[in-house]
Each structure stands twice: as C-alpha cells, then as structure tokens.
Computed example of a mutant assay.
Amino acid sequence: MSFTGVCAATRRASEDAHLVFADQCLAAVLLPAEGGWFLQAGFGPCDHEAIVFDTLSSAADWVRECFAAAASALSAEALNTEGPPARI
C-alpha cells in the first residue's frame, strides 16, 4: 500500500490529492474534504462512491479490506467452479 501526493485540478483551482496504490495498481484517488479525505474515484475492488475517511490511515485500511474481500471472493469462486473431485 502506498500513497503518492499529486496536485489535482479542481473547479476552484488546484489542491493536494493522493493516489492510492495497492500492489502497484491504482486503487483510489483521494481529495481533501472537510474533516478528512474524500474518495474521488475508486478502481477495481475500490469502485465505490462518496466515502469520506477521517485519515489517510483509515483510507488505507479500507483499501486493504476491499482487496482482501475481492481476493476471498475470487478464491471462493474458483472452489465452486472446479467441479467435483475426480473418482479413482
């Protein structure tokens, strides 16, 4: 999990923002909001809208949870599609 500080163009000018990467993949774009950080865009498992996080740390925890849930769902799906065990 990593954050990269960037400058985001906004309607008012520009402001600090953070790109959030999980396993070197862009997971989210966070913009400052009153009282925290606003999820401007989420990608893949983080594709959600209108979430405000108190801290960048809480945003990181949420991204980790999203990726863990997606991995768990993929594992469960793989188990369900493998079919019955072969008979010998």
Rank of each mutant, 00 (worst) to 15 (best):
P32W: 03
C25M: 14
C66E: 01
C46F: 00
T4P: 03
C46W: 00
H48S: 09
G44E: 11
D47H: 09
E34V: 05
A69I: 04
A28S: 14
L39C: 11
L56V: 02
S72H: 13
G5P: 09
D23M: 01
T10Q: 08
G5A: 13
A70R: 11
F53Q: 00
P45C: 08
D23V: 00
S2K: 14
A8R: 14
E15Q: 12
F43T: 08
E49F: 10
E65T: 10
A78D: 13
A28C: 14
F38E: 00
R87K: 09
T81K: 15
Q40G: 10
W62A: 06
C25F: 12
A59E: 00
A13D: 12
A28T: 08
E49K: 12
R64T: 07
A50P: 00
V52K: 05
A28G: 13
C66W: 00
A50Q: 10
P45W: 03
N80P: 07
D23P: 01
E65V: 05
F53T: 00
L31W: 07
T10K: 06
H48E: 11
G36K: 03
A22R: 12
D47Y: 05
A27H: 05
G83F: 06
T55F: 03
A60S: 13
Q24G: 09
P84C: 06
I51V: 10
R64F: 07
H48N: 09
T81E: 15
L31N: 02
A70G: 07
C66R: 03
G36F: 02
V20S: 01
D47N: 09
L31M: 06
A50N: 10
C25A: 12
L26I: 07
E34Q: 06
A86W: 09
S58K: 04
T4E: 14
G44D: 12
A13M: 06
D61P: 01
A13N: 10
D47V: 07
A41R: 14
W37N: 00
N80L: 15
V6A: 11
A9R: 14
A68L: 11
E82G: 15
L74Q: 12
Q40F: 13
R87V: 06
D61F: 04
A78H: 10
C66K: 01
F67W: 12
G35D: 02
H48T: 02
D47P: 01
S58C: 11
E77W: 14
W62N: 02
A17L: 03
V29T: 15
T10E: 06
R87Y: 05
S57N: 08
P45F: 06
G35K: 02
